[in-house]
Write a protein that binds this DNA or RNA. Structure first.
Lengths: 124, 124
DNA sequence: GTAAGAATTGACACCGGTGTCAGGTTCAAG
DNA sequence: CTTGAACCTGACACCGGTGTCAATTCTTAC
């Protein structure tokens, strides 16, 4: 598929898709004229990339990590090197802490929202 | 307490503490010479601010939100306006989605790490 | 062949919290 | 006093994924 369709199907801008390619996260065949031609699996891959970005990983880490991830299409996946495993463990711990932080903030927001709702309802 | 101590106790840089003040997130008395003098509650407040930042809220939203948060010292808290409640609900939903994303990424990382560990252990 | 839509590369800018440096002032201990 | 640590303000820069514009080129349907 072409970049426009991939952008539409993933909700990711064409700009970002091209950027991913420069970062070694995403590959595409080329038409004789030079237009990118993506495989079907690119959709899942792009979504995964976005998740990793959202998790706070940088392009370089994602580039190392992606080959080790079992895809939906079950291709053979690489085995992470000990160094990468160490890095990923650090990231995982960071993510765990981040989730806790988010949960705390979420609860505070909920509390503020609930309090306002209560005041509105009872009117005192 | 002085800014140095607050920075040490919260793990937040002096630079950031001063920045928070410009954003209306944190106040401090001043010594006759102009040095900041923080109340004891500043520690909790700074930690809360950091959590909100980590949750993806911008300074302006945090500034609106903070007065409505019930502090540990139980001072009277303001009631969020309907507009703010709307904004916060949007933020809360965003945080919920983010937590889900983080969880997914965390599982993938765990999988990669576990796979590598298994290969290392069995050696095949 | 031609026109319109889609894609290409390249460059510049943004966001916004934080790091850091400079030059000057205040504080506290001797 | 004096001295060194701590603090003050102001300014500049960064990060790094993304938005956006410009000038070309490719594709496709008529």
């Amino acid at each position: 598929m072409r970049i426009g369709e991939l952008a539409r199907r993933t909700g990711v801008s064409e700009r970002s898709l091209r950027y991913y390619e420069t970062q070694g996260l995403l590959t595409a065949d080329r038409t004789p004229g030079g237009h990118r031609d993506y495989a079907e699996g690119a959709v899942d891959r792009v979504i995964r990339i976005q998740e990793f970005y959202a998790a706070g990983l940088c392009s370089a880490k994602i580039a190392e990590l992606l080959p080790c991830v079992r895809d939906a299409d079950g291709g053979p996946s690489a085995i992470a090197t000990p160094r990468l495993v160490g890095d990923l463990s650090v990231e995982r711990d960071r993510i765990d802490r981040k989730i806790d932080e988010l949960r705390r903030s979420r609860e505070v927001l909920d509390d503020v929202i609930a309090t306002a709702a209560g005041e509105t309802a009872s009117g005192d």
